[in-house]
Amino acid sequence: MEANQPHTPPAAAEGLVSVSGLTRQFPVGRSLFRRATSFIHAVDDVSFQLNAGDSLGLVGESGCGKTTVGKLLVKLLEPTSGRITYRLPGLDGAAGQENAPLEASAIIGRQLRTFRRQVQMIFQDPYESMNPRRTIYDTIAEPLAVQGMGTVLDRVDMVSEILMLVGLTPPATFLFRHPHELSGGQRQRVAIARALVVEPAFVVADEPTSMLDVSSRTGIMNLMQQLAHGLGIAYLYVTHDLAVARYMCHRIAVMYLGKIVELAETEELLRNPLHPYTRALLSAVPVPNPEYRREPPSIVGDLTAPIDPPERCRFFDRCPLATHYCRDNPHPAFEEKAPGHWVACYEV
């Protein structure tokens, strides 16, 4: 995908994380004796940047590839093509100069250990993302222990401290309990504690509130935001809810079937949505101003899985503005239509 990459990634060149042309495909129906002939284009030619202390919301329907982007960023998955570069404290680029960008594919061995300290992920499901046989202490101390940070006693202190930060007090009553003895909200606090205990520079939060009841959601979101701002952590916040992204993030990227279709500052995106898909999403979000009426653009058709999708615009089948031009041309390029406002659509 390097070849057809007419656009430079949005945002400044000093990115903590820069993604360009990122693509990940999953083979369909492969077996031991049969090579896959079709692929799910889970993430297709995605580009964006994130600066230190920045926050980006990744919004889209279920199955559009949000989690896959997150896993690619934390190196749980390898990209099919495209590149991710990091500028992380303690991780030097190939030339060895300080703070030169480092390619994700070049991070191996000892550098991978440093990387694991700087980049963390909070998982979607607080029930399945903790080993049921390990205590809260074991779970939170795991990144410290595997990276050899501190002695056992230091770790007890560090874990107790972070437990207090995430509001699980007094820590002594939580340290040696098992995950199943905690509520969903408490577990998600543990998950946050575990991600932050190593003081990372960048965190991917994969819908950390989607499995929680409404009453504990706000608490977790506030906590995430406070801690991230307080500790100067940049984060990618994955969610299917624009309102949550608006509340949590400086900028929002809207994703549709593996493509980012629009990216802008939060308020700009909400005030002036350009892509028909973003507009459709927004019509589902309550508008704070009761005087204002937004005409709901209709989305026609269903969400299809992106298995070997046709070359044309991904949104074509459901787009209310689709034209013959859209049908006959490849997926529109991701272009800066206004300062800092990137859109992939022929009709805007």
Binding site: K71, V74, L76, L112, R113, R116, R117, V119, Q120, M121, F123, Q124, D125, E128, S129, M130, N131, P132, R133, E142, P143, V146, Q147, R194
Partner: peptide, 24 residues
Amino acid sequence: PYIEAARVAGGGHFHIIFVHIIPN
């Protein structure tokens, strides 16, 4: 997912096999 969580935490193959898989 806790196996992926262990990888993100920095756990190597040995750690994951002996600390997460075998005890379970």
